[in-house]
Computed example of a mutant assay.
Amino acid sequence: MAALIADKYEAWKAEANARFDQLKANEEELNRIFAEIYDMVGEVPIEVEDKYVSVARIFDTAEEIPESFKGNKYVRTRRDEVVSLISYAVGCMLGRYSLDKDGLILANQGDTVAEYLAQVPSPTFMPDEDNVLPITDEEYFEDDIVGNFVRWAAAAYGEETLEENLRFVADALGGKGTPREVIRQYFVKEFFADHCQTYKKRPIYWLFDSGKKNGFRALVYMHRYQPDLLARIRTDYVHEQQERYRAQIGRLEELAADADRAQKVRMEKQLKKLREQLAETTQFEEKVHHLADQMIAIDLDDGVKVNYAKFQDVLAKVK
């Protein structure tokens, strides 16, 4: 049955805020009881300041947060909740979570889709087969992360409400363009930073990143890592992306030859970006090739920091 993310959000906000109010009331009642027991009524504060209540309180926007809540690390906004939803969706895309079963699904070293299907035989939403989710400026790949998110939203909330749900997500994130464009920009520019913050600079979803020109990026799930992963990223994704850049550059160069001045200026700008992205992916491919040939193994028991450092030349920096 189709559902609206907006309705789910409002229901969760009401539940969370009622819990906040109840906890605050409970703490104040305890303060009154102890003040009476120790004959200190009027000498000790009874009221509990909002900033000291240690459960979530949700506001639609940061501008709505009263001064009394400043300093409360549990305060959240609609954007925070949508970011959490996106994180859960990525977990479903990579097999960590499932729409059909609570808790962790793939959480052991080297887990594959086969292990996922053993736990969830008929999934509502199927995780990515090869554990690689490309994040690019445009939808170049069939398993593109934005395309995957759209399919996840349709599976989770229904096809009938898909466009309205994408608008709600995009409005919460903020930005210009269509809902899909806003969501893409979030994945390109902000998702990994938010993920690192959530996991205290110990990301479990690793971002392969060619550099500032965004020539190529892709998320992988650490727990599903296999020694041949980099070889697959190189041949199935980076090489394909390079070929697309070359083809786009070739077409634009042909069109620019017969274009008028205004068109030529626009095309030259596009060409500059594509050439920079191609150059960046060429350097990136060499680094990936070097590491891929080593067939590096990891051990989850070593922790994220140790394992991430093995691929630091091709992974995004954790800030």
Rank of each mutant, 00 (worst) to 15 (best):
A153D: 01
R184A: 05
G91M: 10
E36I: 01
R261P: 00
S68Y: 00
E159R: 14
E285R: 11
R78D: 04
A259K: 05
K264Y: 04
D7N: 08
N165Q: 06
R251I: 05
T61Y: 07
Y74L: 14
Q263R: 12
F187N: 05
N72V: 09
V41S: 12
L255E: 14
V48G: 03
R232W: 00
V306Q: 05
Q242N: 15
V314W: 12
V265M: 10
A25E: 13
K51Y: 09
I233L: 15
E43C: 01
K264G: 01
Y199A: 02
K264F: 03
F20W: 13
V44K: 10
Y205Q: 13
K189G: 03
N214I: 04
K8M: 06
K310D: 06
E285N: 11
Y38D: 06
I145W: 01
H289A: 15
E142M: 08
H223L: 07
Q270L: 08
L4T: 05
D100A: 01
R19T: 10
Q119P: 00
Y74Q: 10
Q248S: 14
V146P: 03
V90T: 06
W12V: 01
A170N: 01
P45M: 02
G250R: 09
P121M: 04
L278F: 14
A14H: 01
Y225P: 08
K201N: 14
I105A: 10
P121D: 06
I183R: 12
I296T: 15
D236M: 06
I5R: 03
V306P: 00
V288K: 13
A279V: 02
V150N: 04
T281E: 14
K310C: 12
Y52N: 11
R232Q: 11
E47F: 02
S84E: 14
G175C: 05
V83F: 08
I37C: 03
K272Q: 08
A247W: 09
N214R: 11
A262P: 00
V150P: 00
K269P: 00
I46R: 07
R184S: 04
A25R: 12
Y199W: 14
V265G: 01
E163C: 01
Y308C: 12
T161V: 02
F311E: 12
E240Q: 12
K176H: 02
D258Y: 08
A156P: 11
L230N: 14
A2L: 04
D144K: 07
F284K: 02
L278E: 12
Y237L: 13
P66H: 04
E160H: 06
Y186P: 09
L117E: 15
A172S: 14
